[in-house]
Write a protein that binds this DNA or RNA. Structure first.
Length: 564
RNA sequence: GUCCCAGUAGCUCAGUGGACAGAGCGGCUGCCUUCUAAGCAGCUGGCCGCGGGUUCGAAUCCUGCCUGGGACGCCA
């Protein structure tokens, strides 16, 4: 149990006692909030319960604080309980309990920070899902980093997490892509072919075409155009997906599943496809209607501004229709308890209709959460870099990672709340790459590691170290900071806000640097022997905290760092 | 026109209704014979966009306005 909860329980019990003692009269008890005060002088935790109770109890909040505080039973965690104006109750953690946590953290190892608020529930995080028509660019990179860190944290919080990439391999944009490759293929073979109007201009199209020529020669030229486009398209799509997979690799993102849009329309094991069944379900609920020759989903019934077409008058289904089938598949077919979609800002207008569709399918709409990852504006100094796939003028994930590095890249994207637009200055990111927070954190870990390495070299066995010797303020500060990781996991998992991770990492690093500066660990002085052993234990525990934090963020934890 | 996001230190951004508003970067001073100075210590720096409201208490909630960005297709 988190200390926070222990304290909340103690407060609740004290309030109950005060009530049965007849000194406090309240009809209803508000939820007990236990928070970390901004000012460390106020202790480790505080509750504002007396302030919230004052009106209902018709009493002075400070007096209430007094009455509750004196009824709080002592626990191993709590050292002191103090009422404070205007009506807080402040808690200080006991030093001996804190010291003991060093052992607890070491013993927990990789499971440190884990909890079970997810209770094994199946949750899918679907993210990136860029159309395989071109390389992944910077905006998508943000979503990739966000999704993977979120998935990591949800897993730590006890959810059964599936990371999924939705491959949009159908639709008209893919058609344009297929035709673009076909055109470049023919041009490369000396034919007179003209790029379609909505074609993709990027150089990578020509690259793919020449790769195909290299491996398969000109054999597609002999085929009928429609066949050639389809076949060469399939090859090109597979190449694009492989490319995207590599890009994801470069940024440290992996998926459990790559889900094909086309598969929604073909289902060999069943008389009907996901698409057919989803549509049937909507039809039976009277959520579909035909007019102007098209089939519409009646989303206005769910508060949307207008209805949306699912089948065009041409008979082709829309992207939205695929998406309905896809979500039907996620919930009804695969049985996910919860689905989190991470979409780019350009899809924000689709959230309402997607939730409406889910509801119309008979699924609790709250089980679907759509996170919008806002725009990333790229700059090089004062110059704004436009990002457009069509013109081929954009900065790719690959270019970004080559320039800034994976860890820095992840850190910068993670550090900003998903809902806010961010500016990414490439020049600045490169220039400051040796002076940025990423290295501050990793350097702390490297310092940590080098102490342990030295201890190993000298064959020091600190297993018997006595943690009760850890009384220096910087030692206790470090322990306190380590202990916030489990709370952080809960917070990130509940609010789906991974941007707290880097901020916590900074604070952990600061606590460690302070400790490093003021508490010599491996002492040359024989008299400090016992303290050395105790501190080595603390260092080992801190290493656990660093590794867990960096792992959640998907960043590497280097044992050595040196300036070149 | 409707909707979404944002406006906090010179810059980039944290801040889950609480007790004197924070970090990194930048700028200015100091500190390496001891586990890595990618570090530490100190200084510099803010009508939390503006006006109302709710509250014992507002950067945080509500509302109006201003500024910037984005979305509003039988595209995906």
């Amino acid at each position: 149990m988190l200390v926070r909860d222990t304290i909340a329980n103690a407060v609740a019990a004290a309030l109950e006692k005060a009530s049965s003692d007849g000194v406090i009269n309240v009809d209803s008890v508000p939820e007990i909030e236990v928070e970390r005060p901004n000012n460390a002088d106020h202790g480790d935790f505080a509750t504002n319960l007396p302030l919230r109770l004052a009106r209902a109890a018709r009493a002075n909040p400070l007096q209430l604080a007094q009455l509750i505080a004196e009824r709080i039973e002592s626990t191993p965690e709590i050292d002191s309980v103090a009422p404070a104006p205007p009506g807080f109750i402040n808690f200080k953690l006991s030093e001996s309990w804190l010291q003991q946590q060093v052992e607890t953290v070491r013993a927990a190892g990789d499971s440190f920070g884990a909890c079970d608020i997810g209770a094994g529930r199946k949750v899918m995080v679907e993210f990136v899902s860029v159309n395989p028509t071109g390389p992944v660019h910077v905006g998508h990179t943000r979503g990739a980093v966000l999704g993977s860190a979120l998935a990591n944290t949800l897993a730590a919080a006890g959810y059964d997490v599936t990371r999924e990439y939705y491959v949009n391999d159908g639709g008209s944009q893919m058609e344009a892509f297929y035709r673009s490759v076909w055109t470049r293929y023919r041009q490369a073979l000396g034919q007179d072919a003209e790029m379609p109007e909505n074609g993709y201009q990027g150089e990578y199209i020509a690259d793919i075409a020449s790769e195909i020529i290299e491996s398969e020669g000109n054999r597609y030229l002999d085929k009928a155009e429609a066949t050639a486009v389809r076949e060469i398209g399939d090859v090109a799509r597979d190449k694009m997906v492989a490319l995207i997979r590599n890009d994801m690799d470069a940024i440290g993102v992996s998926f459990d599943n790559w889900f094909s849009e086309r598969s929604l329309f073909q289902n060999p094991d069943s008389p009907s496809s996901d698409y057919d069944r989803a549509m049937a379900r909507l039809r039976s609920g009277s959520h579909l209607a035909e007019h102007s020759g098209a089939l519409w989903f009646l989303s206005t019934a769910f508060g949307d501004e207008r209805d949306n077409v699912v089948v065009r008058s041409s008979g082709e289904h829309t992207y939205f229709a695929s998406d309905i089938a896809y979500h039907f598949n996620k919930f009804a077919e695969r049985g996910f308890d919860r689905v989190i979609d991470i979409w780019g800002a350009d899809h924000q207008g689709h959230v309402i209709r997607m939730k409406a569709a889910v509801q119309a399918l008979g699924i609790e709409p709250d089980n679907l959460t759509v996170l919008i990852s806002q725009m990333v504006t790229l700059k090089r100094g004062d110059e704004t870099v436009r990002a457009s796939k069509r013109t081929g003028d954009f900065v790719t994930l690959r270019e970004l990672v080559d320039e800034v590095g994976m860890d820095a890249c992840r850190y910068f994207f993670l550090a900003r709340a998903a809902s806010t637009q961010m500016e990414f200055d490439l020049e600045l990111a490169t220039r400051e790459s040796s002076e940025n927070p990423v290295y501050y954190v990793q350097y702390a870990h490297a310092r940590n590691a080098s102490i342990l390495n030295l201890a190993a070299e000298r064959g020091i066995d600190y297993g018997a170290g006595d943690v009760s010797l850890l009384t220096h303020p910087n030692e206790l500060e470090l322990i306190r900071t380590m202990l916030r990781l489990p709370e952080l996991v809960v917070q990130v998992a509940e609010n789906l806000e991974p941007h707290h991770l880097p901020h916590y990492a900074m604070e952990l690093a600061t606590a460690f640097h302070h400790f490093y500066e003021n508490c010599r660990v491996i002492s040359a002085d024989q008299e400090d022997n016992e303290l050395t052993l105790a501190r080595l234990k603390l260092v080992a525990a801190a290493q656990v905290a660093f590794r867990r934090t960096l792992a959640l963020m998907g960043m590497s934890a280097p044992d050595r760092m040196e300036r070149s």
